[in-house]
Design a protein around this nucleic acid. Structure first.
Lengths: 268, 268
DNA sequence: GGGAGCGTTCCGACCTCCGGAACGGCAGCT
DNA sequence: AGCTGCCGTTCCGGAGGTCGGAACGCTCCC
């Protein structure tokens, strides 16, 4: 987030609380590469407050394992093996497996880009995105993680998770467009509305001209149901919230409900 | 690959050659999860030949960093943070960035699933896959890594890389269908043909009924050009190698050539 | 009910790893 | 060109982390 050049502060979940200090530092080193695509030993050392020599060894060891790759002149970059591991991680997710057919069907129905997202910290992580062939293409949707407050999926997830609400408010509602809801009170009201109507909308709040509609995938059979994930449809605001809105809402809700049902059935 | 239950052998690139022993073991622990989706401390210890207590600490440390996640009852599983890192890794690849528009265009043209792949060891790793809305969907194409010898992309990559050919042959041409080319001599001949015609085909060799056509993305301006990646179109054999074959071949080659050109332009 | 298997914790001895300083290479500047 | 600053890498000794064995709970299955 805050990409202050040489913050010697450690990313809060760092290098002395757990056993296996060197492994913890190695993970912290990896984490440095979320902020910047390429880093050398000196910058990593400065950012983590460790010796330059230590950073150098860490980088070399991680590169030996394929988690990092050496990009000419001693700089390093995230390695492709991480992509492999990451794909394996989501492929093995029951959620993704059962959701996929319904996502495909939903895309056919609404002919817009369809997403599946979960909460990670105060962000939404998109596990899957099926693009429409026609408009938009992938050029615009090159993100895999969004602030939860300006996302319809984030709103759906927060609507059933008070601790997520607290975390989001503590982090602050960052403005991205003139339409982003940044007032905590107004934002809370969107959650109430989400709970009442069973779906969430997000109009021009992340990218002007683009809006989305999301519905929750629930878990927990009893009275205490919680959203573990959400399905959303995203597209140009005119197409999403104009005359076609009822159809999109119905499609998204139907898909989310069917995924919910299938998920309980499959995990029994 | 070989999923022999308790092979105490180490995955060849392991835990004593490099400095930072504990980091190396941590990476080796991660690697255990490519073969099996869930593992406990005992199995990891047996597989790597380390003490159970060590394995336990490694697992805990990796889980603290989010690289692993605890799946009830002490078993662990690859964590979602790996997915994030992996997405970042490919997002930052210049190759993927410049290829994407052309892949989308190609999918529109041929209306089949389009792939972008690179070589990783003796396998092909698929960096991107754009599915067609209609047929096939994603149900079948849930792999992200294939043996190179039974893949059109692998054939294209091997055609310009003698060391890759050697590695593939040393590993052996595993049979997957009755049509898989497993005879080294015949396989080499497919490479010759690939070089001559500028594209590769793969008929029913990986999955019966499915075939693909691939063309190389080249690098190196001078006489020594090498394929760094390849574009392929995959679909039902009847659609790929029937009357539409010339159109598909032309589309794939055109896309690959344009990506090649754009890649040199962008990396200048 | 008992036993086997598992994950986890504890402890001491060993050894690896950390940090500082020095080295070599590279680029940019004068 | 020569110089200088910067960076990645290597070397070394001391100190602290880390490893392996054994013991502890726990669950599941006989």
């Amino acid at each position: 987030m805050t990409v202050l050049p040489f913050t010697p502060m450690v990313p809060e979940d760092s290098l002395d609380d757990s056993p296996l200090r060197s492994v913890s530092t190695a993970v912290a080193v990896l984490d440095c590469f979320t902020a910047e695509p390429e880093l050398g030993a000196t910058k990593v050392a400065a950012r983590l407050g460790i010796a330059k020599s230590t950073a150098c060894r860490m980088l070399a060891a991680l590169a030996a394992g394929g988690l990092l790759e050496k990009a000419g002149s001693g700089r390093y970059r995230l390695g492709l093996r991480l992509f492999e591991y990451g794909q394996l991680a989501v492929d093995r997710l029951l959620l993704r497996e059962v959701a996929m057919p319904f996502l495909g069907e939903l895309r056919e129905t609404v002919r817009e880009t369809v997403q599946l997202g979960v909460a990670v910290g105060t962000d939404v992580l998109y596990l899957e995105r099926l693009e429409t062939a026609g408009a938009g293409l992938r050029f615009r949707t090159d993100y895999h993680r969004n602030p939860a407050h300006s996302s319809s999926i984030g709103r759906v997830l927060a609507a059933s998770d008070p601790s997520l609400v607290a975390a989001i408010l503590e982090r602050g509602l960052e403005r991205r467009t003139p339409f982003t809801v940044v007032d905590p009170l107004r934002w809370r009201r969107t959650l109430v509305q989400t709970r009442e109507q069973g779906y969430a909308t997000c109009r021009d709040e992340y990218d002007q001209g683009w809006s989305s509609i999301a519905a929750p995938i629930l878990t927990g059979t009893a009275g205490r149901r919680r959203a573990v994930a959400a399905v959303s449809v995203v597209g140009a605001t005119s197409r999403m919230l104009g005359p076609r809105k009822p159809a999109v809402v119905q499609g998204v809700r139907r898909a989310a409900e069917r995924i919910t049902v299938e998920l309980v059935r499959a995990s029994s």
